[in-house]
């Protein structure tokens, strides 16, 4: 149940930031996660009047406003073409269409949730985030920071994504993922972003990898093993740490398989 005393449709990002510095005030993205948190909010700060909704394609990449819905991302043809459909694959399993029409990319990333498909995806895409007042930083750096009173305004995704694949595993359709991976091969560097462990997504990279390496079973085994060994897995009621570790390696190998297939 969402308890809100006051509501402010912010007129500037500066105003939103000043209000957000007070602990009891909260930025309102889609409000779906906030609704599940049972703390009273003094002032809900609505960013929807600040032109932060939508995706702009530039020559180098995509500029995504923090208030863009997950559904807008999922159905964006340009983004999906550049990421070999990884964006759609990451988002299409999240609850339902109506839900994804409400949840925003800003709210999804800002929480840095341990179950997040969205953070796993954007970490794999080596995105950048624009924070007010900090400025633009790599998402890997952002993922390691604790949520504070800054405001996430934009996300930047470069067009030269190389080859990308995304996969997740769920106990049941529309549930939270128990493992999620985004694997990319770009200019000889292979990167695996691993989320839902359940811990904030983290990435592992190996340089000097050529596409022929992906033909070798031993290479796939070794990369998946080393990537999984570089992060911690935990247990909760969805899965044990051992199971997550095992499934993550399987997902990485399947992603590598589709990167390889995509090249043929």
């Amino acid at each position: 149940m969402l308890t809100i005393k006051d509501y402010c449709l912010a007129e500037s990002i500066q105003q939103a930031y000043e209000l957000n510095r007070k602990k009891q005030n909260k930025i309102l993205g889609g409000g779906i996660w906030l609704k599940c948190c049972h703390f009273p909010i003094q002032t809900a700060i609505d960013l929807s009047g600040l032109g932060l909704e939508g995706i702009t394609e530039t020559e180098e990449g995509f500029e995504i406003g923090a208030m863009t819905s997950l559904r807008q991302l999922e159905t964006h043809e340009g983004l999906n073409a550049c990421t070999c459909g990884a964006v759609k694959e990451a988002l299409r399993h999240i609850v339902g269409t109506q839900f994804r029409n409400c949840a925003t990319v800003g709210g999804s990333l800002f929480g840095r949730f341990g179950f997040s498909d969205v953070l796993t995806l954007f970490l794999g895409l080596e995105a950048f985030v624009e924070l007010y007042p900090t400025g633009i930083i790599p998402i890997g750096e952002f993922a390691k920071m604790q949520p504070d009173d800054s405001i996430l305004t934009k996300i930047f995704v470069k067009k030269d994504q190389g080859k990308t694949a995304y996969l997740s595993a769920r106990n049941t359709s529309t549930d939270f993922p128990l493992a999620a991976c985004c694997v990319s091969w770009k200019e000889g560097t292979l990167t695996a972003s691993m989320g839902a462990r359940p811990a904030k997504a983290a990435a592992f990279s190996r340089e000097n990898v050529c596409l022929e390496d992906l033909e070798k079973e031993e290479f796939l085994e070794e990369f998946a093993r080393d990537a999984a060994a570089s992060v911690n897995f935990g247990s909760n009621r969805r899965a044990s740490a051992e199971y997550r570790n095992y499934v993550t390696k399987v997902l990485i190998k399947r992603c590598l398989g589709s990167i390889k297939e995509g090249d043929r």
Binding site: G30, G31, T97, Q98, C102
Partner: peptide, 11 residues
């Protein structure tokens, strides 16, 4: 289509 339980009336 949206979830009216999760959208504020003011939105």
């Amino acid at each position: 289509p949206v979830l009216s339980c999760s959208v504020l009336a003011l939105r």
